[in-house]
Amino acid sequence: MPRTQRQPGEQTPPARRTPDVGPQRLAAPRTTVLRHVPGLAVCAVLAAAATGAGLVAPLVGAPVIGILIGTLWRVRLGISPVLLPGVARAKGFVLQLAVVLLGTQLSLTEIAQVGASSLPVMLGTLAACLGVAYLVGRRLRIGADLRTLIGVGTAICGASAIAAVSPVIKAKSNDIAYAVSTIFLFNVAAVLVFPPLGHALGMSQSDFGLFAGTAVNDTSSVVAAASSYGHEAADHAVVVKLVRSLMIIPICLALAALVRRREARTDPATAAGKVNPVRLVPWFLVGFLLTAAANTAGLLPQSTHAALAHTALFFITTALVGIGLSTDITELRRTGPRPVVLGLVLWATVAATSLLLQLAVG
């Protein structure tokens, strides 16, 4: 039957919508992934440069150099909106993945062999540092997140602890940058001051190893300080440091519970609901425990340890480059020198507590 001609003034009926097809539906996730590529690529390239510089200046280390490079990029060149999704992914997911890889360097067997004799010193320094961080930080009117990061970084394992805690408390990039910088400053001081102090006090190799393992923050600085004292001191310090790193687990769990409690106070719907303990455990902390257990069970060959350690360090450096790219220098200037003062107080507190507890327990 021939089609009837449309009369003048008659409106054309709306076109029938074509339903979405499979490839069109897949385009959105693919686009979402691709938009992270530019920022991640920039962070990775800058992290590679920081890694090379870290080999030349191992006392400074690639993570600190990475955050400095990222911050300088932000100051001199700014940051394009195209880079923002990838930068956010670097300082989020990549940072969490680095924490998982850190577990590959831990052995539960080695931890058991350290013995109960070192636990009083480790737990005592941890409690003293966190307590002083809370009291002095509040006295100095330092924000809760920043004083938490500086306290945990000083008490446990420097940048690695800050990397683990930051996503749990949802810390801002500026607070992370300031905390890492403060920790680095007193790492350098510890490497320079602690070995002469140990000789002046007549400390044995094992005593100084315990001192360095409990009073110095980042692993690289622990090795640097203890190695200058002696090979036996370095071996003992590294094992103590590994045990000390495990304190990340209860700290993260406690902070996750506190964050949940704080959010419940501001959101009545959350407060009314039941708290699921499983949801308090960050996924990357579970990954950290699984990789440590796999290493203990011998599932990770010894030949892979160095590569995994370097990969974890590169991921941390990549994340810190992203944090540097997100850092607002104006805000850091507004914060002033108070966080550095807190870092100095905590550094002195941890060192004094470690020495006093060693003296007390013999």
Score class of each variant (00 low, 15 high):
Gln113Cys: 01
Ser245Arg: 00
Ser160Arg: 00
Leu346Asp: 00
Thr4Cys: 11
Leu97Met: 13
Gly9Tyr: 00
Gly153Tyr: 07
Val94Ala: 11
Glu263Ile: 00
Leu300Gln: 02
Thr317Gly: 02
Leu119Thr: 11
Val132Ser: 02
Ala312Ile: 02
Arg89Thr: 13
Pro167Ile: 02
Arg3Leu: 12
Val191Asn: 03
Gly298Val: 00
Ala352Glu: 08
Ala212Gly: 12
Lys241Ser: 01
Pro29Phe: 03
Ser206Pro: 10
Ala15Ile: 12
Val223Phe: 14
Thr327Lys: 04
Val180His: 02
Ala297Lys: 10
Ala233Pro: 11
Val45Trp: 10
Ser118Pro: 12
Val180Lys: 00
Ala215Thr: 08
Tyr229Gln: 09
Gly343Met: 03
Ala234Thr: 08
Leu84Pro: 03
Gly61Thr: 02
Gly52Ser: 09
Gly209Cys: 14
Ala179Glu: 00
Thr214Ser: 14
Asp207Trp: 08
Val180Gly: 01
Arg261Gln: 07
Thr154Arg: 11
Pro8Met: 02
Val216Gln: 08
Ala47Gly: 06
Arg333Phe: 08
Leu253Phe: 11
Leu280Met: 10
Ile162Gln: 01
Asp328Ala: 15
Gly298Ala: 06
Leu289Phe: 06
Pro29Ser: 11
Met247Ile: 08
Arg30Ala: 15
Arg76Phe: 15
Leu313Asn: 05
Gly92Arg: 14
Gln205Lys: 08
Arg260Gly: 11
Lys91Ala: 05
Ala200Lys: 08
Leu320His: 05
Leu285Tyr: 05
Met1Ala: 14
Ala224Tyr: 05
Arg17Asp: 01
Arg76Gln: 12
Leu135Met: 04
Arg35Cys: 13
His231Ser: 15
Ala28Lys: 13
Lys274Asp: 10
Val99Leu: 09
Lys241Tyr: 01
Leu40Gln: 08
Leu192Thr: 09
Ala293His: 06
Ala319Asp: 02
Glu331Trp: 05
Ala307Ser: 13
Thr71Ala: 09
Cys157Thr: 03
Val278Leu: 15
Leu146Phe: 12
Ala272Arg: 13
Leu299Pro: 07
Val286Cys: 08
Gly153Phe: 07
Thr32Trp: 02
Thr304Glu: 06
Thr327Asn: 04
Arg89Ala: 15
Gly66Pro: 04
